[in-house]
Structures are given as C-alpha cells and as structure tokens.
C-alpha cells in the first residue's frame, strides 16, 4: 500500500488517526512513567530497607520467603518469616491467620499491612505469588533429586 497512491481524503484520515493515536500514546507513556510507583502493586525488599515505605500506612510489600525462616508459635496461627529479593535486601513479616495453599519456603508472597518503626511488617493479609513455570509432580521431584532445571536449554 503506497501512501501516495491513496486518495487524498483517505490519506488525510489515516494520518489524522495515526497522529491522534501517536500523540495519545506519547501522553500515556508520560502519565504511566509518572504514576510508576502507584502502579506497582507492592513495595520490594529494597524499597522497604531504603525507607520508601510510609510508616503506619496500610500498604503492600512482597518478596521471596527465605528458606529456614518460617517460625510458627504452638497453639496459635501466629507465624513469622523473612522475605527477601534474593539479592541481599530482606525484612520480617508477622502474620496471624490461615496462609494460602501455595505458601512455603522459596515461594513469592505479597503481604498487605503496616510497617512498624522497628522495620517489622505486620500483615493483615498474605497472598501467594507464583512463577510462570508449570510442571508435573514427577518432573519436580526428579528436579529436586538432581538439582537441575529441565526448562533450561
């Protein structure tokens, strides 16, 4: 399709629409960049450590549950665990209640709650965040045995 071969009215309509969409796209890009922090669903461990989380406000924070960090108390649903970004930043979450099915070590979580003065996140709600990899149980068990990822080339 040659632009030159189109009738002038049609070409003008096309250019007008492209211009409109292009302009709006540009505006949208700027708006989204400005709202970036608000569009993110949760604060990361780096942000928690860096003090970006407003104290006392009800927010969301998340990360990966660190191996060996889960501590439960006998007789109650209280649980405490460390959440990290696997790159050095970590913080503690304390929660009382039933945890989602998928909750366990090495799993992602997103907690809703408040950050206290001493850096502990008191959660009212824990959501499990899982990755995009799927595999049958046998494959997963074989993986654990050999510690290799069959999904990598």
């Amino acid at each position: 399709m040659k632009l030159g071969a189109m009738k002038p009215q049609r070409r003008n309509r096309l250019l007008l629409i492209l211009g409109l969409v292009g302009g709006l796209g540009l505006a949208l890009t700027f708006v989204l960049k400005a709202l970036n922090s608000n569009i993110n669903l949760f604060y990361t461990p780096v942000q928690v450590i860096a003090g970006e989380v407003p104290m006392g406000a009800r927010v969301r924070a998340g990360g990966m549950v660190e191996a060996g960090s889960i501590r439960r108390s006998d007789g109650s649903l209280e649980v405490a665990f460390i959440v990290s970004d696997l790159a050095g930043a970590a913080f503690e979450i304390r929660y009382t209640g039933i945890l989602p099915d998928l909750f366990r070590e090495g799993q992602g979580v997103v907690a809703t709650g408040t950050l206290s003065q001493d850096g502990v996140f008191f959660a009212e709600e824990i959501l499990a965040k899982h990755d995009e990899k799927y595999m049958p149980p046998e494959v997963a068990m074989a993986l654990d045995a050999t510690r290799q990822d069959p999904l990598q080339p």
Partner: peptide, 23 residues
C-alpha cells in the same frame, strides 16, 4: 514493566514454553 501479582507469560511466540508438552 511493573510489580504485579499476576505472573509473567508462560506462553510467548518466541521463547520455549515454560511447561512440558503434556501441558
């Protein structure tokens, strides 16, 4: 682009799918 609860794509046009053929 953002931190979301929804996980990234398992199925794209270019990469190998993050799941076996049985799935």
């Amino acid at each position: 682009w953002w931190f979301t609860l929804h996980q990234p794509a398992s199925f794209t046009l270019t990469d190998r799918p993050a799941m076996p053929f049985s799935m």
